[in-house]
């Protein structure tokens, strides 16, 4: 249990990433419902949640720029900062053609592989038909597995017919408590402080924060006139 958070001294920072493109967008509305449920549950338990929203529609041109040129625009830079300091994430995508939207996927494709390590994430998606229901678990979950997030067991999917059902509210409640408990446990902080170096990083990765240089590696020995380690048999 992280005392700092439960005493209410500092709220949990929850980043909401929404791939919705209309205004208002059901994808954003779903994300907001989840975020406010997390906030309400935290409040009941004496905590608080501060929400930052990253609406990908406003980042669309910077996302494509980042894909073709690696240049991060100012909005992308801010979004990366928000995600880098988030205690938890709600990632909500519209489903197009049986897949999370390209805008949503592309945003996560250009993030550093190690930006979100161990962070608790709720995955959510919206669609016009229940036939898309497995997109969250079969496609989005694997993307976040690659990013090594701590994705909560309950995913939230809302097709048109779900919006007025109490079951959706219950699923949101389940996902929200799962996320909150993971945030309260300090799991991400602990993994990152105790095991960070066991994950693969590049210099300047993790949104520009990974700047430690290990001078004791085989490559560093080679850089300073030593011998290369024997090649592995392939």
């Amino acid at each position: 249990m992280n005392d700092q958070h439960t005493t209410g001294a500092e709220p949990f920072r929850l980043a909401v990433v929404s791939g919705g493109t209309s205004d208002p967008s059901s994808t954003r509305m779903l994300a907001d419902r989840i975020a406010s449920r997390v906030g309400a549950l935290a409040g009941e338990r004496g905590g608080a949640v501060a929400v930052d929203v990253i609406d990908l529609r406003g980042l669309a041109s910077e996302i494509t720029t980042a894909i073709v040129s690696q240049l991060m625009g100012p909005k992308m830079t801010r979004a990366i900062e928000v995600l880098g300091r988030a205690d938890g994430v709600v990632a909500s995508a519209p489903v197009y053609k049986a897949a999370p939207s390209g805008l949503f996927s592309s945003f996560f494709h250009v993030l550093d592989n190690d930006l979100l390590i161990a962070k608790p994430v709720i995955l959510a998606a919206t669609a016009g038909t229940a036939r898309h229901a497995l997109v969250v678990d079969e496609q989005m979950r694997s993307l976040f597995a690659y990013l090594r997030t701590m994705t909560v067991p309950t995913s939230v999917f809302a097709a048109t017919e779900d919006w007025n059902s109490s079951e959706l509210g219950e699923r949101i409640g389940r996902a929200a408590i799962e996320l909150l408990l993971l945030m309260e446990s300090g799991f991400a902080e602990q993994v990152r402080s105790e095991s960070w170096k066991h994950y693969q990083h590049e210099y300047g990765s993790a949104g520009g924060t990974e700047l430690d240089i290990d001078l004791g590696t085989d490559l560093m020995r080679l850089a300073t006139g030593g011998a290369a380690p024997p090649r592995r048999k392939e």
Binding site: T64, T65, V68, S69, L71, M72, G73, P74
Partner: peptide, 14 residues
């Protein structure tokens, strides 16, 4: 290298 990506203005700024 960067064509069809950022605008000239974005690139000169960043």
């Amino acid at each position: 290298v960067y064509g069809h990506g950022p605008s000239l203005e974005e690139f000169t700024k960043g």
